[in-house]
Nucleic acid binder design. Structure first.
Length: 363
DNA sequence: AATGCGGGGGT
DNA sequence: ACCCCAGCATT
């Protein structure tokens, strides 16, 4: 492979066609770190507004380190993979304590921070400091596998070694690794698409054996299709006499750890209406230590969480104060009025449900 | 090597 | 109704 030509063509194309993204206008390692974490498994268009809001509230690592995790969650709510927010916050505290509030510049130090793996750590340092470090993520993995005409499953150890080795070899000896890495990612994301790649626009077309053999649909090798599980879940809008709603914080061992949700549980196995009602009553008693009068179903929405497709059925209910005296809830709960709800970090489906309720209230 | 972890954009 | 995405940590 003619790496010198590859570098030159990639960078020339990038200078003419690269997108102007917010995190490309800074060399602040903290800002770039934030963008990289937000961009993990999340598309650029989704990230941009979150990135601006977050940096406005927490302009420096120290601002983030001294914040409450709840506020970090609030700014993250809707982005998904909330572990990222937790680890970002924990890492910011480490940076504040161990590195004097400056995001480290040594790869060894960077990779000790939680939530920072091989890609993210190298990306921050190569983009911010032009460090001569390789990167492989979704876009470059696709591009490199095609440039190498690598037909095996990219997830195996052998494949990963091949791809990371290429990512190292492609770097220039002198300066310019950061820009080259950006350029190759951009080509991967804008031209070297999974399906119907824009080969005729690609500056690397003459270097690409996959194009020469017409094997774009074979490389990278298709991943095995995911299997989804359908679930039916029930959410409860429980009101007390003053009109406040019951919400609960998701525990560390479940989805949306640390975020708030309406009382919710799996009712996939409830085949009849009476089974459902009994299950709901038992659930509320066991988990929230109170009794309710179950009202009618008011809404239903569908959403997806990792490998689950969820139909969420929502019932209204009133707190039954005559059924007092049950044991205290085992999880953190809160009765909140409508004005307080916006200050809670709700997961996306809970937020959708709450928005729907608000809209109903208006009309 | 496989799995859990969210949510939304694009087609 | 799919497929995919600037991954990481755990098992």
């Amino acid at each position: 492979m003619e790496l010198r030509a590859l570098r030159k063509k990639a960078v020339a194309w990038f200078q003419g066609h690269g997108r102007d993204l917010p995190w490309r206008n800074t060399s602040d390692r903290y800002a770039i770190w934030l963008s990289e974490v937000m961009l993990q498994q999340t598309q650029v268009a989704t990230v941009i507004p979150y990135y601006h809001r977050f940096l406005e509230r927490f302009p420096t690592v120290s601002d983030l380190a001294s914040a409450d995790l709840d506020e970090v969650y609030q700014l993250w709510a809707g982005l998904g993979y909330y572990r990222r927010a937790r680890q970002l916050h924990a890492a910011a505290k480490m940076v504040a304590e161990q590195h004097n509030g400056t995001f480290p510049s040594e790869p060894k130090d960077v990779h000790e921070l939680p939530g920072i793996g091989r890609y993210t750590g190298n990306a921050v340092l190569t983009f911010a400091d032009d460090a001569r470090l390789p990167i492989v993520e979704a876009n470059t993995q696709r591009l490199y596998s095609r440039l190498l005409r690598w037909k095996n499953d990219c997830s195996t150890q052998e494949s990963q070694k091949v791809l990371w080795d290429f990512a190292s070899q492609v770097l220039p000896k002198g300066a310019g690794s950061g820009q080259l890495n950006q350029a190759l990612m951009e080509i991967g994301s804008q031209l070297c698409l999974p399906k119907n790649p824009h080969c005729l626009l690609c500056p690397l077309i003459k270097l690409c054996p996959t194009y020469a053999h017409g094997e774009q649909s074979l490389i990278p090798s298709p991943k095995k299709p995911k299997t989804y599980t359908d679930l039916v879940e029930t959410a409860l809008i429980i009101r007390d006499p003053s009109g406040q709603l019951l919400v609960r914080r998701c525990s560390a061992s479940e989805r949306w750890a640390g975020l708030w949700d309406f009382p919710r549980f799996d009712t996939t196995k409830c085949k009849t209406q009476s089974t459902l009602q009994k299950t709901i009553a038992e659930f509320v008693r066991a988990r929230f230590g109170c009794g309710i009068h179950l009202g009618k179903q008011v809404h239903q929405l569908k959403h997806a969480v990792t490998r689950y497709r969820i139909t969420l059925t929502c019932f209204e209910a009133e707190l039954d104060e005559s059924q007092a005296g049950f044991s205290a809830p085992e999880i953190e709960t809160l009765w909140v009025g409508p004005s307080q709800m916006s200050g809670l970090a709700l997961n996306s489906s809970a937020k959708r449900l709450w928005n729907w309720l608000q809209k109903q209230r208006e009309t």
